[in-house]
Design a protein around this nucleic acid. Structure first.
Lengths: 346, 346
DNA sequence: CGCTCGTGCTGAATCGGATTAGCTGAGAGT
DNA sequence: ACTCTCAGCTAATCCGATTCAGCACGAGCG
């Protein structure tokens, strides 16, 4: 039954009051005096008729739609995008909001069209999300509207942003190893170009975490953030006689390569060498032993962005979301004595 | 600059015509006579003022919002969900529509709330999507509204549905092997419970495809759709002296297990045994040799659902989307002579 | 007894478009 | 000269809420 929609007038008539009165009761407003009697009649009638306000009509008047636009560069490519959307979505729903989702695929024209289309539909605000943390230039159409950046920061820092707290994650990784007993044979694996936020922050965090207890990195293995690259670099590192007790990998793919190189060098994780990493991708749970990794909190990022948007907080620099440590089996105590001889022969 | 919105009245005034005339020009309607002169003035004014119609106001009158609700059970868990959304999204955008995205996580209450919230915002139609093909009971709130089912079918078959053409995919797999020269030593791997749509259809398709050329399956290896299960079952199969030239795996994870079992039996893919599979997940491209697999067309499924919804086609049984064959290196000609001896010793 | 005041409520305007009904002035037909 | 079209436009209404500006009535007060 495609029921003809019940309007406020229907409710008012049934309750024997004016539309105005019905409206005030439904809005729960107390600044206008309504008798308990009338209020009850209206609520009763609304329930009986199964009244649902027409949000388009309301929006026309109030300029509010209880609707948020999520504009991102990529939805499909990375598996975790789903979690990010899910976090935003469920939080929006909690606040009686709905989410328009749009993806630009990096195309600036598409992005502008999306923003326009959403504005035409009167979204109350925007979440402008990037799938990897970067410096971004949100489209000009967003100026003058409520916006929260997700996983990116604007050039002028005038827009509130939600970011994973990469620096703290670095500190956590450092402390984890220190607590396990490692000290001056901790090495970092992976390049850290200054313009890559996650790289810079993670490294800084690690160094800070170690410095807190008077320790410094024993060295760095420079390589791309891919298994092949880290495998090759770390194999050479071992071959050159290096003898770390722990390796901090800048992401799970790097750690994957490190596992391969360690196995080839006859080293066991974590007995001979401990490994800790960042991202907590699926890979981390697939590896043997399970890789201890510090997760990117995708769901929380989405949740926080929506909370921030709806709370309309002032734009301080950035809101950082803690990155949770997922401990598996790749970190242990360092070998106590001097290192056992090792090599390809075993 | 949070520009105060330009209204139709502003445009009309600037063009020196009435709101009515401006409205007709903007709507591009020809059933009302407007001089070329007036039309030009209106269009010019609209452009000058950068006029954008207020869609809430329009919707209030027309009951159309150019908005679609996508309600699904799961967004995050499966990686391919992104592609499905992306297909729907880009197609909607092409038709000047926007997409509300909602996920129920299987919770019926959440699902109902989502549908209500979307209806309150006047969506023109729904896409009710499932992340794996199944029989579904769309919530009662959808009754009387335009709906397309995506990746699921309703019990009463009264709602148009979009499904991957699994049966045709089965035929394609069969023909691929026949064309490569295989005939009566083709074996299927994976269980096919009647209630699992993909299983039933894929098997039927394979049998049809073979039957077209007078061939029948040489046998079936029964196992779950997971690597461990197929590995164990196929290993036993080989150990029992079975000697297939080709294996049709019911998905890529099954094929993964088959690769392992084949390697262990000293069989090379595709020289000793050809393998073809379904899904075309990432796994297929990761395996060596690359796995020839028949893809689930996620993007196309999303696209087709939106097209169907907007075209308002009558509900015939189901709209089937072709599953494209992705050829890699796992299918070759069968060994010509009698099978070489083989076993664990190679 | 008339006047103010507070309570409880209502009529009408408003938001920005779409749409219906009708008005005007020029040229054609008789 | 007098209707009759018809092209070309406009006034008015509607969609369904929110909200401003009162209005009636009874109690309290001097």
């Amino acid at each position: 039954m495609p029921t003809p929609r019940v309007t406020l007038l229907d409710v008012a008539r049934r309750a024997g009051v004016s539309r105005t009165t019905a409206s005030f009761v439904m809005a729960g407003r107390t600044d206008m005096r309504i008798s308990a009697e009338a209020e009850h009649r209206v609520l009763h009638a609304a329930r009986e008729l199964n009244y649902r306000p027409n949000l388009m009509a309301r929006s026309l008047r109030t300029k509010l739609t209880r609707t948020i636009g999520l504009v991102s560069d990529t939805i499909a490519s990375e598996a975790f995008a789903g979690e990010l959307i899910r976090g935003s979505l469920s939080t929006a729903l909690l606040h009686q909001h709905l989410l328009f989702v749009g993806e630009s695929e990096g195309d600036h024209t598409v992005e502008m069209q999306l923003v326009q289309d959403m504005l035409d539909r009167g979204v109350d605000g925007f979440i402008y999300a990037s799938m990897y943390t970067r410096r971004a230039r949100p489209p000009s159409g967003l100026r003058g509207h409520r916006v929260v950046l997700l996983n990116c920061v604007a050039e002028d820092h005038r827009i509130p942003a939600v970011l994973p707290d990469e620096r703290d994650a670095g500190r956590v990784a450092a402390r984890l190893l220190l607590d396990a007993g490692h000290r001056d044979r901790i090495v970092m694996v992976g390049e850290t170009p200054a313009e890559v936020y996650a790289a810079r922050e993670r490294r800084t965090g690690v160094e800070e975490g170690l410095a807190e207890r008077g320790v410094a990195l024993a060295g760095t293995v420079d390589c791309l953030w891919w298994p092949e690259s880290s495998y090759a670099a770390v194999r050479e590192f071992f071959a050159g006689g290096a003898d770390p007790t722990a390796l901090i990998c800048l992401n799970d793919r790097v750690a994957f390569g490190v596992y391969q190189a360690a196995a080839e060098a006859g080293l066991t994780v974590p007995d001979d060498v401990s490994v800790v990493s960042f991202d907590d991708s699926h890979l981390a749970s697939w590896l043997r032993p399970g890789l201890t990794s510090i997760a990117i909190p995708h769901f929380e990022l989405g949740r926080t962005a929506v909370e921030l948007l709806l709370a309309d907080l002032p734009a301080h620099d950035a809101h950082r979301v803690p990155m949770p440590l997922r401990e598996r089996g790749s970190v242990g105590a360092p070998r106590s004595g001097p290192p056992a001889a090792h090599g390809r022969s075993g």
